[in-house]
Design a protein around this nucleic acid. Structure first.
Length: 255
DNA sequence: ATGGCTTCATAGTGAAGA
């Protein structure tokens, strides 16, 4: 079972790339973030024709998540239960006995911003919810754009980023709180080359210079981590004409 | 240099992303 997360930064713009990516890699599940379109505009016909069932929660301009699956998406949830949030950032569904949770964690903008406080509160709510969800679903995968680089080795220039949003200590603590639930970073289950990232700024020729961060992740519950065969980031998708600023991250499960 | 690109909503610029 191949599961993937990709922040597409506008599904409207990136749909041709998504369709091509699906055709090439044939993932079982693809979780999208930043679809940036209202549900009425969701390209359901095109994705169905490509062989994928979909659930989605979108809004105009910002945020928006979608989950594409070859198999049925059972018991869907939209948003974190009992956490009031206007922003469309969460989907969950069960596929082939695996609970898939798709998250677009708030960016936070900067550590002195109200949005940073929203990010930390949001992460608290996510962790509290997943604590319960894991009791129901021992096979759980948490995929998405976390907007957190968990360690210095996930940052091209740790000194420049020290204390900045995406790298600050409270954000990294929140990431470790998710790991404390037993969720394991699939990428780090394997030997990986140095300086592998999932996001590069559009500016400054950041991609060409590999000035990136690893902020997109797939965390796996113990039962799934034990079944994980590989975890990688598809940097090639960042090289195409008019790319998203994020690359797809994927994990292969022996399930 | 507090920008640099890209997207969206909008009709000239501004907000947001990370």
């Amino acid at each position: 079972m191949k599961i993937v997360s990709w922040n597409v930064n506008s599904l409207k713009v990136r749909l041709p790339q998504v369709l091509e990516w699906l055709a090439t890699y044939q993932p079982d599940v693809l979780c999208l973030q930043e679809t940036k379109q209202e549900d009425i505009n969701f390209p359901l016909a095109e994705l169905n024709a490509a062989g994928y069932q979909c659930i989605f929660a979108g809004q105009k301009t910002y945020n928006g998540v979608a989950m594409l699956s070859k198999q049925a998406l059972q018991d869907p949830i939209y948003g974190i239960p009992n956490f009031a949030d206007e922003q469309k950032r969460v989907l969950a569904a069960t596929v082939n006995g695996v609970r898939i949770v798709d998250v677009y964690i708030p960016n936070g903008q900067s550590v002195d911003s109200d949005k940073y406080q929203y990010k930390l509160a949001w992460l608290n709510a996510l962790t509290a919810w997943l604590t319960e969800e894991l009791k129901t679903y021992p096979k759980l995968a948490l995929l998405g754009d976390y907007n957190i680089a968990p360690e210095d080795r996930d940052v091209h220039d740790p000194a420049a980023w020290e204390g900045q949003v995406l790298c600050s200590a409270p954000e990294r603590e929140a990431f470790r709180a998710l790991q404390a639930l037993g969720l394991q970073d699939s990428f780090r289950l394997f030997e990986q080359p140095e300086k592998i990232f999932s996001w590069w700024d559009y500016r400054m020729n950041a991609f060409r210079r590999n000035m990136g961060l690893r902020i997109d992740h797939i965390l796996l519950s113990p039962a799934l981590a034990a079944a994980c065969k590989s975890a990688q980031i598809d940097k090639e998708a960042r090289k195409v004409e008019r790319p998203s600023d994020h690359a797809p991250v994927f994990a292969e499960l022996d399930i």
